[in-house]
Design a protein around this nucleic acid. Structure first.
Lengths: 106, 106
DNA sequence: TAAACTTAGTTACATAAAGTAAGTAAAATT
DNA sequence: AATTTTACTTACTTTATGTAACTAAGTTTA
């Protein structure tokens, strides 16, 4: 029995989104440009993993890192067009979670 | 500066989908009821991790495990209504990946 | 009838990823 | 001069995942 192979583009997207924190970082940046510490405190990720994730997302062309020459230098992270285009993914997760997820509180 | 807390339902959904293989298992079961070895060979997951994932998804009410009393016994996995309702999530990832992902081949 | 195979896993051990906590460098504030 | 802030990095620990071998119950093959 021949199994249909999974599309490599889809598999790549899935492996990106299946890394812990990746989706939450993108979700956070959908709210707008943010700095390292803002993202960190918003989602509760460690500095180490956040810096790894931001580098990965930069390499994938999803996030841009901008060094603003102020005093002191400010580093801003935002989504590229590719990153922005992930909004429907995050929103489908969000609306599914509202319909189907139960926490201890409800 | 007060950061808006992330909705616990959304966070729970994200943490489910951020575990490796989870999304691919659901994607595979969207094609229909399947047996352990079918899922395993379709997505290339190890038996150990597949059995862990299926148990988690069963506990979340996303997957049902059915023991069919044939000779020999057949065990079938399928999606519940909750599981089926994740289709739009997987499809949004799929269509995003078609538009934006590049493999070495293209 | 015995040997080998299949299915749906489990177990033991190895490697990789993530978490924690402390450290750092450059500049600003006290 | 000492402390604070930002955007990280480093060292170490814990957790997750991978690999390979094993199992039990039944089936097919020699």
């Amino acid at each position: 029995m021949k199994q249909q192979a999974i599309c490599p583009k889809f598999e790549k997207a899935i492996s990106l989104l299946s890394r812990r924190w990746t989706a939450l970082v993108i979700y956070q940046l959908l709210l707008g440009t943010q700095r390292f510490n803002e993202i960190q405190s918003a989602i509760g990720i460690s500095g180490k993993v956040l810096s790894e994730r931001l580098k990965e997302l930069e390499q994938q062309g999803i996030v841009i890192r901008e060094v603003i020459p102020a005093t002191p230098v400010v580093i801003e992270y935002s989504l590229t067009e590719k990153g922005q285009s992930m909004e429907p993914i995050l929103h489908s997760i969000e609306s599914w979670s509202q319909q189907w997820m139960r926490t201890e509180l409800d």
